[in-house]
């Protein structure tokens, strides 16, 4: 149920996520050790195009990566295929991407 293009897209999103995860963990450690409050964090992220791009890219990469992975699991576990599987894959991508970007918007807008 995974063709070469979905395979490449999943590897590409993994490549994108790897440095972003490291960056996110580094930011969390910095924020916690520095004792930043929620409002101080928001003060740094709100209005920042850099943080919006950082976490926006992360949210889209996660949504693509997870949707492709779940597509394989759903096909192998429940036997779902064809259009139903394609719609469900897109639905998972839209749900995860929508939630992720909503959260990014909330802290950067």
């Amino acid at each position: 149920m995974i063709g070469v293009r979905l395979y490449m897209l999943q590897r590409l999103t993994a490549l994108i996520m790897a440095p972003l995860v490291i960056g996110h963990i580094a930011v969390m450690i910095y924020a916690v050790q520095g004792g930043l409050s929620a409002s101080e964090i928001l003060g740094r992220t709100q209005g920042s195009l850099l943080w919006a791009l950082f976490y926006g890219t992360f949210a889209v990469a996660v949504a693509l990566h997870a949707a492709i992975g779940l597509r394989a699991i759903i096909h192998e576990t429940f036997g779902l295929g064809g259009k139903s599987l394609a719609i469900l894959t897109l639905g998972i991508f839209a749900l995860l991407g929508g939630m992720g970007l909503h959260a990014v918007y909330a802290v950067t807008a």
Binding site: M1, I2, G3, V4, L6, Y7, A72
Partner: peptide, 9 residues
Amino acid sequence: VSGAGGCHN
């Protein structure tokens, strides 16, 4: 080998 049942599965 690159289709829905191909090597990428």
